[in-house]
């Protein structure tokens, strides 16, 4: 990594060789990480910033915060959507400049709604539902490693997530209650979106990228039960919202995972 700390980063333009790292797409990545990664990709595409997606088995350990995804731009490494949004803003790329104070407050609030309910629900289903954890999450999460490291890492991760669920009061929830929370969250998003093309009228913001990342991933991912995707498919405006962003920003690349196939 070349270090050139003398030039203020804000002045540097977006380089051509920016990379986004995520776990292996086919055998390893889990629903929640895939959703977060897609959200960042959607955000960068909305900003018109090119980024090359690179899959690495140890992406989680390469990330400065331990979270997926992270981007490597010039001599800087930034992980997660929130910091990446701030980072691009410092470089002069922002999607939310046109919003007034109240709209910006609402946008941030809805982004936390997605993190607080959708992301937590994804983690819960992945690691706290025994069937999903045994059939999908543990084998996929540990696929690059051999025995006994694969079991150790997978159970360690599961234990960590379960402790976190207990700390935020989700420990005692049943799967049905979690699906109910997802419905409630989608209901709120659907109400907020209404008949507009994007959450704040005609221009997409980081909220649109985040919502798209999660909803699109949930709809197009096969889990042990299709219940989670079914809950989202009940909201037609959210579906057409996903399709709109897919067509506008992803049409050329994702022909093989077309949303229309799943709906």
């Amino acid at each position: 990594m070349n270090v050139c700390v003398f030039i203020p980063t804000a002045a540097e333009p977006w380089p051509e060789n920016a990379t986004l790292y995520q776990p292996l797409k086919e055998d390893q990545i889990l629903l929640s990480d895939c959703a977060s990664s897609l959200a960042v990709q959607a955000y960068l595409r909305m900003c018109g910033l090119p980024v090359q997606v690179v899959c690495r088995a140890n992406a989680e350990y390469m990330s400065p915060s331990g979270k997926i995804p992270f981007i490597h731009v010039g001599n800087q490494v930034v992980s997660e959507l929130g910091p990446i949004v701030q980072f691009t803003k410092a470089k002069g790329h922002s999607l939310s400049d046109g919003l007034d104070d109240v709209q910006r407050a609402e946008m941030k609030a809805y982004m936390e709604l997605v993190n607080n309910m959708l992301l937590t629900a994804e983690l819960f289903i992945q690691w706290c539902d025994d069937a999903t954890a045994a059939e999908i999450s543990r084998p996929r999460y540990s696929s690059p490693y051999s025995w006994p490291l694969n079991n150790i890492l997978a159970y360690q991760k599961q234990w960590e997530v379960r402790r976190k669920m207990n700390a935020i009061g989700w420990g005692g929830k049943t799967l049905e209650q979690v699906y109910e929370d997802v419905s409630q969250c989608c209901q709120a998003l659907s109400q907020r979106l209404g008949t507009q093309p994007y959450f704040f009228s005609k221009q997409p913001t980081e909220l649109d990228a985040l919502v798209f990342g999660h909803l699109f991933t949930i709809i197009t991912t096969r889990l042990t039960s299709g219940e989670l995707a079914e809950r989202i498919k009940g909201f037609s405006n959210l579906l057409s919202f996903c399709r709109r962003i897919e067509q506008t920003y992803f049409e050329d690349k994702t022909k093989n995972t077309k949303l229309s196939k799943f709906v």
Partner: peptide, 16 residues
């Protein structure tokens, strides 16, 4: 319904 959605969002904002 929209105000109910806003409530949920701002409660999440505070929790996070």
């Amino acid at each position: 319904a929209k105000e109910g959605a806003d409530s949920l969002a701002f409660i999440s904002l505070m929790e996070e």
